[in-house]
Design a protein around this nucleic acid. Sequence first.
DNA 1: GCTTTTTTGTTGGATTTCCAACATACATTT
DNA 2: AAATGTATGTTGGAAATCCAACAAAAAAGC
Lengths: 223, 223
Amino acid sequence: MDAQQLKILQSCPLFTDISREELYAVLNCLQARVIHVSRGQLIFQEGQQAAEIGIVLSGWVQIIREDYFGNRSIIGRAEPSQLFGEAFACAGTEMLVGVIAATDGEIMLADCRKVLTLCKNSCTFHNKIIFNLLQIVAQKNLLLSQKLEILSCRSTREKLMRYLLQEAKSAGNDEFCIPYDRQGLADFLGVERSALSAEISKMRSDGLIECKKNWFRLIPSSD
Amino acid sequence: MDAQQLKILQSCPLFTDISREELYAVLNCLQARVIHVSRGQLIFQEGQQAAEIGIVLSGWVQIIREDYFGNRSIIGRAEPSQLFGEAFACAGTEMLVGVIAATDGEIMLADCRKVLTLCKNSCTFHNKIIFNLLQIVAQKNLLLSQKLEILSCRSTREKLMRYLLQEAKSAGNDEFCIPYDRQGLADFLGVERSALSAEISKMRSDGLIECKKNWFRLIPSSD
DNA sequence: GCTTTTTTGTTGGATTTCCAACATACATTT
DNA sequence: AAATGTATGTTGGAAATCCAACAAAAAAGC
């Protein structure tokens, strides 16, 4: 475990509020192990019982899925300091996705039961890890719910409006900047870029919004 | 705490694998309290810091949300033995939804920090509760991901196919029954019922599927 | 059996979205 | 400033979806 790896681990959300000294202790306690993977190597196989949580230390991994007919598709990625497999490990179900190394790299693996079962010395930091893990999964849950709310809208205008309302709410302000360019926003909303641009123009001329690049302002309806 | 309420609690996923005797102890340990609510009463307010988890003991509650302009919409419900508010409580964020009593009823409220912080006597069942909670949130996570995968498809055919592939996979078989009628399936996929029916007919004549009512069979493509 | 109700399939026109192509605006480089 | 590249806006026809209305089939009630 070199200094670089330790730094990555410290920025992993699983270890938030864990000091460097505690980190050493907790890693020992979790019996976490570091493996070297080479490009293309399967780390978790779809269908296997999920028992381990992975943390990317270097390189990056792809989350992949195969449908009934064997067609593979990439559904996500994880970069250094990011977790993967935690939802399956915590849910106690079999993996519905596979994880494959996209580059050579190093991965830390920790048995989820070890994480969840308190060690004899009932260390306070072990407790903190469980807390962090729950928080991570719950936060992801909220993100997924928000996105679901958007994608369940039928029209482009509704989707965009729903998204903008979410942003306005979290900004606590009717004007705000969004973290996407047009193409990125279109991808996020699940619509065509050109259709999105056209809809933005319409909504602008309908007096619903003002916007300039990634800056938006919602205009309260006058009823 | 009467016998009926106890029975409801025992079927709550939060208390899976907790015996009746342990349940008494753990409720005391969590300092859970039962409140009576009347129809229309606000239980959790949108915007407030989430600290408590709710369990419906009798009656039922609605999960509601208000957009930036104050329009209310119902986005979910919870019935006896079901949890609510757990994602926000665990994520440690403010409530992005409100919860309101749809009928008179009884609600159990438990401070989430109490749930997550082990009591002095470090009871084994308390540990079990944390484990259950994590499992519940993680499982919900997987469900949301699956639904997101479907809704992110652009066409009706893709959505249906993705859904059927999921069902085939979880059934481990190319034939299976789905738990929806046509209207229900259309709602789930986020499309029109008539468009769905038409698409099913097309896919049938294209030789992709066989189906009769809620029974489906996937036909492997012959390439 | 028959009638009634519910569910599912079909159809055609209005609407929306997709798609490709091009125009314009903006930023960067030379 | 000119040239290049990228992001965004606009447009028109093709394709898909929505929507309402109706037809057919299945289920439920009498």
